[in-house]
């Protein structure tokens, strides 16, 4: 097995990573780049915990091989906060009580960020649809939806 070098943009910075081809984007981000905010919940695209923003769209990084990320523009939760301070979406999640165990939260916030980048004033229905690929086992979703709406109101 020959190693490959993946060149992409991660959190607004160009990176190149030498990696075995049998690694997922999820592994590359967590292990090679130390971006452990990206969580592995189910390993099969069913829970959304490993969601990253990939060329502007939310995707599950457990379903992508590292090599496929060549040339991609990737944003993880580490690339959202500004100088260690929460951005408007993160702040809304904190204030709305949307965070309990927190394991789903990186994926939730990134999905919300991707929605608000495209549609800064979504309806509640659009919020629910956009967030429907992220499972939370603690909150029951209501406060998460409220958090996204709160963030949108401050956009």
């Amino acid at each position: 097995m020959n190693k490959i070098t993946v060149h992409c943009t991660v959190n607004h910075k160009p990176v190149s990573v030498e990696i075995e081809p049998n690694k997922r984007l999820l592994d590359m981000l967590r292990v090679n780049l130390g971006l452990t905010s990206v969580k592995e919940g189910c390993s099969e695209g069913e829970c959304g915990a490993c969601t990253v923003i990939y060329n502007g769209e939310p995707v599950t990084s457990c379903c992508i091989l590292a090599g496929q990320a060549e040339g991609a523009d990737i944003i993880t939760l580490e690339g959202v906060s500004v100088d260690g301070k929460p951005d408007v979406v993160q702040q809304a999640f904190i204030e709305s009580g949307a965070i309990q165990c927190g394991f789903c939260i990186p994926g939730m916030i990134l999905t919300a960020e991707a929605l608000l980048m495209k549609n800064p004033h979504p309806t509640m229905e659009q919020i629910k649809e956009a967030m429907s690929g992220n499972l939370c086992r603690c909150t029951g979703y209501k406060k998460i939806e409220e958090a996204v709406a709160l963030a949108a109101s401050r956009m």
């Binding site: 695209g45 990939y54 939310p58 995707v59 599950t60 992508i64 999905t111 429907s132 690929g133």
Partner: peptide, 9 residues
């Protein structure tokens, strides 16, 4: 199909 993330892939 699936979820927004899955439909994007």
């Amino acid at each position: 199909v699936g979820s927004p993330q899955i439909r994007n892939l």
